[in-house]
């Protein structure tokens, strides 16, 4: 399981994460919600190594991730889909997917082909448009591509940063339900960050509410959805 203990990440002496501790169960979706500036993205970026924590620790089963490089963390099975449908728009769809599996091309060529076939089956529209530049895709397709790039690495833990940002509700619901199915069928562990709480909590096992860099609630997702006082206080609805 993913275990985050007493994590502190500072930007020029401002504590973006202030003593965060929680656990995410393997094979389940854990959803992190919170208002703008609560530290959700910083949390994911610290886990994936893009930001260095000032103190605290992050472990994935028995593996200590805290001081590893981004590349090493990806190679140990933790993939991040960053905020804003991060794909490389000048590269083709197929090249973006190839990029995600490039680091294990030598050891696992056969499995890489299967993994590539799998993501094309999951998102057939990407197969149709595989030769086009990623920049020509719609927002939803770009998010599918960003997820596919992460999935061909065959991660055990997937960090999703606001996948529904800027997408039509129908499309974001579709993407989240695909992630949900993936968890159930492959045992993937997901840490999902969202501002849009309802859809994200509906598929989650566990919910964590962040405010100003602190954990203010760590509850089963159903209880978090039901707690209207908590939501009114921290999310404003």
């Amino acid at each position: 399981m993913l275990k985050v203990s007493n994590l502190v990440t500072e930007f020029a002496s401002i504590k973006a994460l202030n003593d965060i501790s929680f656990q995410a169960k393997p094979g389940r979706i854990t959803t992190v919600i919170g208002a703008n500036g609560a530290g959700k993205s910083t949390l994911l970026r610290t886990i994936s190594g893009l930001e260095r924590p000032t103190s605290g620790s992050i472990t994935w089963f028995d593996e200590e991730l805290t001081d590893k490089s981004v590349e090493a963390i990806v190679r140990s099975g933790v993939a991040q889909v960053p905020e804003g449908h991060a794909v490389i728009s000048q590269l083709s769809v197929a090249e973006n997917i190839e990029l995600g599996g490039l680091f294990r091309k030598r050891q696992a060529r056969g499995d890489l082909e299967i993994a590539t076939k799998d993501v094309y089956e999951l998102f057939p529209i990407l197969f149709e448009r595989r030769r086009e530049p990623a920049g020509s895709l719609s927002g939803g397709e770009r998010q599918m591509l960003a997820i596919s790039r992460a999935l061909v690495a065959r991660p055990k833990l997937l960090l999703l940063d606001e996948p529904s940002l800027g997408l039509a509700p129908l499309i974001s619901a579709q993407i989240i339900s695909i992630v949900d199915e993936l968890c159930k069928s492959t045992g993937l562990t997901v840490l999902l960050v969202e501002q849009n709480a309802n859809t994200a909590l509906a598929v989650a096992d566990h919910g964590i509410l962040l405010a100003l860099g602190k954990v203010v609630a760590d509850l089963p997702a159903k209880e978090l959805i039901a707690d209207s006082a908590l939501r009114a206080a921290y999310l404003g609805y």
Binding site: V74, I88, L99, F103, R149, A150
Partner: peptide, 23 residues
């Protein structure tokens, strides 16, 4: 693959690092 990695790191180092490539 190495050529692709070089183009990708020039265009977007962060996404390339997140793909496990030693930029």
């Amino acid at each position: 693959g190495m050529g692709l990695a070089m183009r990708a790191s020039a265009l977007n180092p962060e996404v390339t690092r997140l793909s496990g490539i030693r930029v």
